[in-house]
Write a protein that binds this DNA or RNA. Structure first.
Lengths: 228, 228
DNA sequence: CGGAAGATTGATCAGTTTCAAGCTCCGTGG
DNA sequence: CCACGGAGCTTGAAACTGATCAATCTTCCG
């Protein structure tokens, strides 16, 4: 299991632990693989443990009765998901599907819980992780309730673009998935991209988007409503 | 400080602790009072600790540049808020004001953090608390993104009504605040209440609402979109 | 090359917000 | 005690955003 222990080192949830703890973790962690599109768990499933992404990407989402999907989070390598069920005992609050071929580590609830009990550092890491997710969710709620789609899209593009000035970014998800991430549908996303193009704020071709007017995007991202 | 220690017993975050721990908590907790409408902290403020509500009610919310408000949570006695900043070190992610005259206990970050480090039970309680909040947020995101206002209102009314059949419930917030809780504005809420009245699903007069057709409300609450 | 999935575009529509006006309730002060 | 005044609530008309439906176009694999 040395190979598992090696991977644990890069996971923020497990940072700062002693070698003995990595050893313990690697004993209880189980590696699982999922094909692209394969379901990892469904909302309401009994939570028997939580997951850490080793490779690939896992989509956590809610889906309405009419089929519209809202992505809560896209988990990349090193990120964990399903922690909530470890502590509340209830079922998972959302669905999880592999957005890419993915490998994950599964940590059974009971075993992990007893590890946490013994190691304050691990507990603190877990609390930090939960807090960070809570902060992200608060931001998503704010966006959904207080901003319109152009604002959310602009914010996302700026996020992809990083701190630098104008430049080209690559969408790391399909446009359909980006729409679900932004809480809208592909048609609307397409229209708004077209509008941003027309206004000269961006130049998009396929998944490549060049940010032409960072300042302009920031304006749209900041204002809650109404395009000026 | 015996009076503080006594209050701690009723707080789920602190359930199952030893008397010595209550003693320790009561030493670091500071009681603070706020008038109705008084601000407890603002988004971005440095998080120097977290709070537990003793009496009254505290509103946690986000506000857009145009002034629209989205309530993230209404904290009643026994509930905690501002925990996120204890662990992430960043500023508070939202605003907090007293919705009623309120008294709270403030626990400074550093002191509390060291308590947690010493007591696995306290740490587990805290994780359960954070997880539960995360679950609530996931539900709110789902509602905002996948349901329309009638659905959210119906769900809220059913929640107030509890498990029982038809009956009369009392809104525990003003209609303006209820609108902010549901992610809409007072006008829209008013119209939808009127519509539910017309359809014979409820009978509302002021803050009193009698649920006439529970089944019908459930239908509206479940479907993501479009009234039938 | 064919075809299916994804992406774009157009027309229409439902739901929500905005703006504006009136109403109701309630506390205050004359 | 009543009248005033204001905050909160309700209602109406119009504007707007985003969703839906439908058709077309693109892409990119088999």
């Amino acid at each position: 299991m040395a190979d598992v222990a090696g991977q644990l080192a890069g996971i923020s949830l497990f940072s700062g632990l002693l070698p003995a703890q990595y050893e313990a973790l690697s004993r209880i962690g189980v590696k699982r693989s999922f094909l692209k599109g394969e379901r990892i768990f469904s909302e309401g499933d009994e939570g028997t443990g939580f997951y850490v992404v080793c490779g690939g990407r896992v989509k956590i989402f809610k889906i309405s009765t009419e089929g519209k999907e809202q992505i809560l989070h896209l988990c990349g390598p090193g990120e964990s998901f399903g922690e909530v069920s470890v502590f509340t005992g209830q079922g998972f609050p959302a669905d999880a599907v592999a957005a890419l071929p993915s490998t994950v580590l599964f940590f059974p609830r009971v075993a992990f819980s007893s590890l946490i009990r013994q190691d304050p550092a691990l507990a603190l890491n877990m609390m930090a992780q939960l807090s960070e997710r809570l902060r992200q969710f608060a931001g998503l709620i704010e966006d959904l309730s207080l901003k319109e789609v152009p604002g959310r899209l602009a914010k996302y593009l700026l996020y992809l673009g990083g701190r630098e000035g104008n430049g080209t970014v690559d969408l790391d998800v399909s446009k359909g998935q980006l729409a679900a991430l932004l809480g809208t549908i592909p048609e609307t996303l397409s229209r708004i991209l077209a509008k941003l193009n027309r206004r000269g704020l961006i130049r998009s071709r396929g998944a490549q988007i060049r940010i032409l007017d960072r300042r302009g995007l920031e304006e749209i991202a900041l204002e809650g409503k109404r395009l000026p």
